[in-house]
Amino acid sequence: MFRLTIALIIAATCRAQSTNPLAGDPQAAETGRWTFRILCAPCHGIHAGGGRGPDLTRGNYSVGDRDQDLYGAIARGVPGSEMPAYGDRLNADAVWRLVSYVRSVARHDAETVPGDVAAGEKVFWGKGACGQCHRVGGKGSGIGPDLTRAGRQRSLKYLRSSVMTPDSDITPGYGTVKVVQKDGKTISGVERSIDNFSVQLMDLSGKYHSFVREDVISIARESRSLMPSYGTVFSESEMNDLLAYLLSLRGSR
């Protein structure tokens, strides 16, 4: 195996059936687990408990709860999300095995948060001023990740950790970069692109910058997020309200 980019088996374009032909076969769930660990675990967690990708153990799914919905999400990806299509790498049988595995880990006791969505919306746009960097629908700013579909894309655990300790996982494309210019001025911003010789970034005012390495003193990636921690900003009830609001963001497609 020579790459981390892992492509799996067979370009199969078999039309999906509506129900899982392997439903009830424990061996299908087990072989699905093997594939899950290779292809899905990097985003959905090694036990499907979620991470950057949704928690799949909740037993209900943003793409729909029917077998064919899960099949479609795996085979064709989820437009507007980071979920890619695996239909050209997995044959129909392998996709159904993944569906079997996902079904086998469903707990059906969905994690909930005791917050109020409307109050959370007020916290988001008011006290938190989250819209200065994030967008929901047509409102807000695009400096940070778009949260229009945050409730579909992220688990509660992940959202809570993102608000409390934003450095714990940074969405690809939203890293922090710091440039020290020759006149001593420093610019920090969201990394839009970087290579061994140049950097392109957006500062917190939304202004775009581009630098070539030899024209500046230093270009450094930082492991921190530009987002401050809100762990001490909100009360516990405000935090719960905010999380309830974020979980309610299902977007529209």
């Binding site: 892992i6 088996i9 072989t31 660990r37 990097p42 090694i46 392998a94």
Partner: peptide, 20 residues
């Protein structure tokens, strides 16, 4: 990571994965 995995012809035989 490792996992127990039986060999099935045509199935990826890697017995788990790596993470960041």
């Amino acid at each position: 990571y490792k996992t127990s995995q039986e060999f099935v012809e045509g199935q990826w035989y890697q017995a788990s994965t790596v993470g960041r």
